[in-house]
Amino acid sequence: MPIRPEMKERYPADWKARSRFVRFYRARNRCEWCGAENGQPHPVTGSKVVLTAAHVFDHRPEAASLLNLAALCQRCHNRHDATMRRVNAAARRHQGQMEIAL
């Protein structure tokens, strides 16, 4: 997943190297959770697999140790982040309602 411009400064300077290491060397170009091969059709969804480096235990961009990163396909990454995205979206909606009330 692309890094949002406002978040870029929170990632380590060597993020690209860490991401590349996790995706291509450690994971050998496959999703570490489901085994889908990068660049090939996903065995479940049929869409082209694009591996990303995902924060697994600690979602903060600064928490970029290799033990906290996993090479994941879109399906696994989205499933892993789904709960966090719902919580963040609810918080943004609530914040917007608070601003309207003021």
Rank of each mutant, 00 (worst) to 15 (best):
M1D: 14
M1I: 06
M1R: 12
P2Q: 14
P2N: 12
R4F: 06
R4W: 03
R4E: 08
P5F: 01
E6L: 07
E6T: 05
M7S: 11
E9M: 09
R10Q: 14
Y11K: 08
P12D: 04
P12K: 04
A13S: 09
D14C: 02
K16D: 12
K16H: 13
R18P: 02
S19L: 03
F21G: 11
F21A: 14
F21L: 13
F21K: 11
V22Y: 05
R23W: 09
F24P: 11
F24E: 15
Y25E: 15
R26K: 09
R26W: 06
R26D: 10
A27R: 07
A27Q: 06
R28E: 13
R28K: 15
N29W: 11
N29L: 09
N29E: 12
N29Y: 09
R30S: 05
C31R: 05
E32V: 03
E32L: 00
W33P: 01
W33K: 08
W33T: 06
G35M: 06
G35V: 00
G35R: 04
A36H: 06
E37G: 06
N38K: 06
N38W: 00
Q40D: 13
H42P: 02
P43W: 00
P43F: 00
V44P: 09
V44T: 11
T45M: 06
T45C: 00
S47P: 07
S47D: 12
S47K: 13
K48Y: 04
L51G: 00
T52S: 11
T52M: 08
T52E: 10
A53M: 06
H55C: 01
H55Y: 01
V56A: 11
V56G: 09
V56S: 08
V56I: 14
F57P: 12
D58L: 04
H59R: 15
R60W: 11
R60T: 14
P61C: 02
E62R: 08
E62I: 02
A63D: 08
A64L: 06
A64Y: 02
S65F: 00
N68I: 04
N68L: 01
N68Y: 02
L69R: 00
A70S: 10
A71N: 05
A71H: 03
L72D: 06
L72E: 05
Q74Y: 00
H77I: 02
H77L: 07
N78Y: 15
N78K: 14
R79D: 15
D81A: 09
D81Q: 08
A82W: 02
A82H: 05
T83F: 10
M84V: 14
M84Q: 14
M84E: 15
V87H: 15
V87Y: 12
N88Q: 15
N88G: 08
N88L: 14
N88H: 15
A89H: 10
A90N: 04
A91C: 09
A91V: 11
R93H: 10
Q95D: 15
Q95H: 12
Q97V: 12
Q97M: 15
Q97S: 15
M98Q: 13
E99Y: 02
E99V: 04
A101R: 14
L102R: 14
